[in-house]
């Protein structure tokens, strides 16, 4: 199968900053890609380019279409939830469902109503009367009822409480995702998505600094708990990061043979957030 997104030499310059700096990457179908980076790293710009919401230099093909020129056609196959609370405040649940049902050729009304039935949302309820969590439930019900090939999520759970956040990703996984669909998600709540991601992309200052699937990440990176006497030996292997917990040092290594590391101490798979913090060290300095 061909790639869902192919970006080659993608660049985007704003007046005072570079949001994307000659970036190239591909995203294969059936993946859940986490696009993770600090604030202002270019995540949202990358997503906007994919969605045809902004101009850019370089080549970008999404589902074989050029998002700049064929946006209308592209959006039949692509859905996105940009941030929470972008639903218009005046709209009622009934109106939102009606509208999307009539303008979106791939919308399944029954599906949407089934999703809505699981929530407390009432047909006559307006968005402005809902909590953030309920707005996201409505948005998610609308989006999951669309048979799209690519779903783009930009900070979809920002500001939600943990119940809504867990439910959000659970719904996506159980009722939406399959091998024909692709999801790209940006978020700062890395801990909550790391178990569902198949691919990881770190972005920093407009550049992609890590682009790997989760298996490769597990092979490449390792976290080792080292007792104090062996710390110097560990440092000699040039760890990415070192921190101390309860008198033990925890080192994060990139590309060191696991057998070699096991001699130093207990080897674990690093969490994405630890990896992220180590990779992004000094971003705001």
């Amino acid at each position: 199968m061909t790639a869902v997104v192919t970006a080659t030499h993608l660049s985007k310059r704003y007046r005072h900053s570079v949001a994307l700096d000659d970036v190239s990457f591909t995203i294969e179908p059936g993946r859940i890609v986490g696009l993770i980076g600090p604030n202002g790293a270019g995540k949202t710009t990358a997503l906007k380019a994919i969605l045809g919401l902004t101009t850019f230099d370089g080549e970008l093909s999404v589902l074989g279409l050029d998002p700049r020129r064929q946006r209308g056609k592209l959006m039949e196959q692509v859905c996105f939830i940009a941030d929470v609370a972008v639903l218009p405040r005046w709209i009622r649940v009934r109106e939102a469902v009606d509208f999307v049902a009539h303008v979106h050729p791939r919308f399944d009304r029954k599906k949407c109503e089934a999703f809505l039935a699981r929530t407390k949302l009432k047909p006559e309820q307006r968005v402005k009367q809902m909590s953030k969590g309920m707005i996201v439930q409505l948005h998610l019900a609308l989006v999951m009822a669309i048979d799209a090939r690519l779903l783009v999520l930009d900070e979809p759970t920002l500001g939600l409480d943990i119940l809504y956040r867990k439910q959000f990703y659970q719904n996506l996984l159980e009722d939406y995702f399959d091998e024909n669909k692709t999801i790209i998600v940006t978020t700062h709540q890395v801990e909550e998505v790391e178990h569902i991601l198949t691919d990881l992309m770190f972005i920093r200052d407009g550049k992609i600094v890590l682009d790997a699937d989760m298996d490769a990440v597990g092979e490449r990176f390792a976290e080792v708990l080292v007792d104090a006497p062996q710390a110097d030996a560990a440092r000699a292997l040039k760890p990415l990061d070192e921190r101390t917990v309860f008198g033990k040092s925890i080192f994060l290594f990139d590309g060191i043979d696991h057998a070699q590391l096991e001699a130093l101490g207990e080897v674990r798979r690093p969490s994405v957030s630890d990896l992220f913090v180590a990779t992004m060290k000094g971003t705001y300095a």
Partner: peptide, 14 residues
Amino acid sequence: RDRSLLFWKSLPVS
């Protein structure tokens, strides 16, 4: 201004 543009633009409407 209220960013609901992002919702309208997520639909296949020119």
